[in-house]
């Protein structure tokens, strides 16, 4: 069989260690207010990048801009080596198929069961037989550590932790290469949060994912992030492994990593 899709052949595979997302000179604002100004950021393939910043500094804005939910004033965003804004609708859909997003509240469709939620992207983009879709959905449910009987439950019947897991299963539905996580551990108890961190790490290794994670959770930063990017003053002020950021002299980073809450963890980590 030689059914080769012409569009599929243009998809570039990014090797681990190469930049998979490249944000250059980005400016985003609403009205007269500028949220991000001349921001640069590179995310490497195969890494877990933790993205931190104070409340209201624009972490979500950057994520949403990369995802195309907000349009930038200027600057470029490259994902998979392609400039996102230069793409036509079809090429854009191809890019969107290669990433998955876990929204903060899960954003599961409330009228559908967990299984149907996971199958939404498959149904939209692919033509698979129903039995295979069911099998793959169940596989994803098991991968994220949910019990099989969660498959036919509606989001309203799930606990907070289960919603996050189900939403992660939906994000992984098309075996994406990049996963965006918006505060994945918020609203979970410390044990649940640690388990979820562990799950992300395992899945990232198993599936070779690139993870872009917006978080406030210092535990997550220490335990699973390869690199951390910090947002302050409308820019990314520092990128690097935890150890490197700990040495930073920037006032915000200093208070972030050396504040009362962080100190215990640092002592534990070193």
């Amino acid at each position: 069989m030689k059914a080769r899709k012409p569009s599929a052949s243009t998809q570039k595979i990014i090797k681990p260690g190469q930049p998979i997302i490249r944000v250059k000179d980005l400016q985003v604002g609403f009205g007269t207010k500028i949220i991000l100004d001349h921001l640069d950021l590179e995310v490497m393939a195969g890494e877990v990048l933790g993205f931190v910043g104070g409340s209201g500094t624009g972490k979500s804005v950057l994520t949403r801009t990369i995802l195309g939910l907000i349009t930038q004033r200027s600057g470029t965003i490259e994902v998979f080596g392609q400039k996102i804004d230069g793409l036509d609708i079809q090429q854009r859909r191809l890019v969107e198929r290669r990433w998955g997003v876990l929204f903060q509240q899960g954003a599961l469709f409330s009228g559908l069961t967990v299984r149907q939620n996971i199958q939404v992207p498959m149904r939209e983009y692919l033509s698979l037989s129903q039995p295979l879709m069911d099998e793959l959905a169940m596989l994803k449910i098991e991968l994220v550590g949910l019990r099989p009987d969660a498959a036919d439950k509606f989001p309203s019947e799930l606990s907070g932790g289960m919603i996050k897991r189900a939403a992660l299963a939906r994000a992984l539905s098309l075996d994406p290469e990049i996963v965006f996580l918006d505060e994945p551990t918020s609203g979970l108890d410390p044990i649940g949060a640690a388990e979820f961190d562990e799950l992300i790490r395992t899945l990232q290794k198993t599936l070779g994912l690139t993870v872009f994670m917006v978080t406030h959770d210092l535990d997550s930063l220490y335990s699973i992030c390869d690199r951390i990017a910090a947002l302050a003053d409308k820019k990314v002020i520092a990128v690097g492994p935890v150890a490197e950021l700990l040495k930073s002299e920037h006032p915000w980073l200093k208070s972030y990593f050396h504040g009362e809450r962080a100190r215990r963890l640092v002592v534990g980590a070193v």
Binding site: M1, A3, A8, R97, M122, Y125, L126, S127, L128, S129, L132, L136, L174, D175
Partner: peptide
């Protein structure tokens, strides 16, 4: 052999 190939992987496996 990825899900992106859609129906093709399914038919290939069957074949």
């Amino acid at each position: 052999w990825t899900i992106g190939a859609s129906k093709v992987i399914e038919t290939q496996a069957k074949q």
